[in-house]
Nucleic acid binder design. Structure first.
Length: 571
RNA sequence: CGGGGUGUAGCGCAGCCUGGUAGCGCAACUGCUUUGGGAGCAGUAGGUCGCAGGUUCGAAUCCUGCCGCCCCGACCA
């Protein structure tokens, strides 16, 4: 491709509404243009990268025996009502109405459609196992789209769905998909990590997320370096020592008029923070016969909302109680709460349950208890894992200590079980002629998000540094001053012809621009290999080679073609 | 949805407070010069000042309403 025939639309200035570097670079390179909030056009340049991701995904899915199909993005409400998700999926579901008043959703995911397809197509155990996938535009009406294509409302996703006669077969195939996903991210040249995950509202039990590691990632992953354990902090656990020391202090009540927070308490009364307990009051689930629940975590620990929401007593989504509600139920403000004499149900974090001689609010404004001990002073309440793990905590499998890293979720695989096949009554005949609900797995990859994630992981202050498998062009040819120098033009044209006809993706900058502009654009675009052709080099019998993000060199004129073919893997 | 901000040329911004009919940089177009790190000179083109009302002799500027977009919180590939 010659730049004169391409739509190259690079920007020197950073658009004001781009926060993260991938969004900035995608706009500056001209890969995407925003149409409206969370909705983007992929330009010819951006589409080249997107297609590269798709290509790798397709090849690996196909290699694992999956079959590509294409389902509609517009889906009738009836299907969603069968699984109840028409009402429960929430505001992310974009609903619309046709001229006859029929309701539809623009598909945010395709469990309903694939299950409808399966119940019509799959009759016999002989057809199973089978896995269908598609690469398709999804729409989720995100409450707050941001970071460009990273959290867009409209996005491109690969979603796959497998069907099995029993759980063991699903589990075996799930392992195949796990390996397939690992291969995909390896081939894309990305540094990634697979972690055990929360399955969210898709449903199902076992689930793993695949994260591209980047400091700007929205997710936090707890893992053991070099070890086996890795989990999203949403569900990561730490090993908990449940041995409780015997009481050694008397329970006493102390005036603490100026201590409204744990930090105040620690500072003013010289108690170790590990000997304090925070009492957080949240709203109870609707089906409970009480309104509020108190959750206890150690003073230096943080409540994990995902874990808390899973408690049957607690409302989901988690809502912190407001001060007025707390006062009317307990008679004290949020800064003075504690387990002793608390008139509402209590759930303690495992760590808290193992504490002794600790301090907490006395449920009376301006007073705290010190020297609290379970059983002696107050009955041990329900116990659960409620806190976020921290760096340095022991891993639950005993394989070492946890460290925290940030990642961008680009893939998620689930074992759905029979949730959808039962809800929609998909049935296949087993060997005995009996109808069975097939076991399902579901496997997603955020294709468009991967493009942004790859940039987050691979850039410098000059622009993108594409992993070679993702690069829109493999080789750039910069014929300096070609508009004046016939021999530069001639040499460059010949090289361009040779590489192009060998199937190399070449971008030749044939614009009559100054060298600085050409260099700047090639670096911004992140093209892995650049060949600089100029009069100076031709005089010296060489072409300059530059490797984006690496070491360059000089190549003799008569070796340039072979050199470039080798770089592009066509040698 | 709650809180905050913002809307002026393709992009980045000034002008608004204190009303007088719109400007700067980059990008674009033409010509000449320049040519190994984002050139110089000369010229050209481009704006319903988000939309609708209102106040006023006169509104980008003041008032009211609406809309878009961005940021902070809950969701997710």
């Amino acid at each position: 491709m010659k730049t004169s025939a391409f739509h190259l639309a690079t920007l020197r200035e950073v658009p004001a509404d781009a926060e993260v570097v991938s969004h900035q670079l995608m706009l500056r390179t001209g890969m995407i243009r925003k149409l409206t909030s969370g909705i983007y056009t992929w330009t010819p340049l951006g589409l080249k990268v997107l297609r590269r991701v798709e290509q790798v995904v397709r090849e690996e899915m196909d290699a694992s025996g999956c079959l590509e199909l294409l389902m509609p993005s517009v889906q009738p409400s009836e299907l969603w009502k069968e699984t109840d998700r028409w009402d429960t999926f929430g505001p992310l579901l974009l609903k619309m109405t046709d001229r006859a008043g029929r309701e539809y959703a623009f598909g945010p995911t395709h469990e309903e459609v694939i299950t409808e397809f399966a119940r019509a197509e799959l009759r016999s155990y002989k057809q199973l196992p089978i896995c269908f996938y598609q690469v398709q535009t999804k729409f989720r009406d995100e409450i707050r789209p941001r970071f460009g294509v990273m959290r867009a409302r409209e996005f491109l996703m690969k979603d796959g769905y497998s069907f099995h006669m029993d759980e063991a077969d699903l589990d075996a195939f799930y392992q195949v998909m796990y390996r397939t996903y690992s291969r995909i991210f390896e081939r894309l040249g990305l540094t990634f990590k697979a972690v055990t995950a929360d399955s969210g509202n898709i449903g199902g039990a076992t689930s793993h997320e695949f994260h591209v590691l980047a400091d700007s990632g929205e997710d936090v992953i707890a893992h053991v370096e070099g070890g086996a354990y890795a989990a999203n902090v949403e569900r990561a656990e730490a090993l908990c020592d449940d041995q409780r020391a015997a009481p050694s202090e008397e329970l006493r009540i102390v005036d603490t008029p100026n201590a409204r927070t744990i930090d105040d308490l620690v500072e003013q009364f010289e108690v170790p923070i590990e000997k304090t307990v925070k009492t957080l009051v949240v709203e109870a689930a609707e089906d409970q016969d009480f309104d509020l629940v108190a959750l206890l975590v150690r003073g230096d620990h943080e409540l994990n909302a995902v874990k808390a929401e899973k408690l049957p007593q607690v409302a989901s989504p988690l809502v912190m109680a407001d001060e007025a509600a707390i006062r009317s139920a307990i008679g004290a403000g949020p800064g003075s709460l504690g387990p002793v004499g608390l008139p509402i149900p209590v759930v303690a974090d495992r760590t808290v349950a193992a504490m002794s001689d600790f301090s907490a609010g006395a449920n009376e404004d301006g007073k705290h208890h010190f020297g609290i001990n379970w059983q002696r002073d107050v009955a041990l309440p329900d116990v659960a894992d409620l806190r976020n793990v921290r760096a340095g905590d022991p891993a639950p499998d005993g394989s070492g200590t946890l460290s925290l890293i940030r990642g961008i979720e680009v893939g998620h695989i689930f074992q759905l079980g029979t949730k959808y096949s039962e809800a929609m009554n998909a049935v296949v005949m087993d060997e005995n002629g009996r109808g069975q609900h097939p076991w399902m797995g579901c496997y997603g990859i955020g294709v468009s998000r991967i493009v942004a994630a790859a940039i987050e992981q691979n850039h410098d202050d000059r622009g993108i540094i594409w992993p070679e498998p993702l690069a829109p062009f493999t080789v750039a040819i910069l014929p300096l001053n070609h508009q004046k120098s016939a021999r530069v033009k001639e040499f460059a044209d010949a090289l361009y012809q040779a590489l192009t006809s060998a199937g190399v993706e070449v971008l030749m900058d044939d614009r009559p621009l100054r060298p600085g502009v050409m260099f700047g654009d090639v670096e911004l675009l992140g093209i892995p290999h650049t060949l600089v052709i100029g009069d100076k080099g031709l005089d010296a019998g060489i072409v300059e080679y530059r490797r984006r993000g690496g070491e360059g060199g000089e190549v003799k004129l008569d070796e340039v073609e072979a050199f470039a073919l080798k770089l592009a893997g066509k040698g």
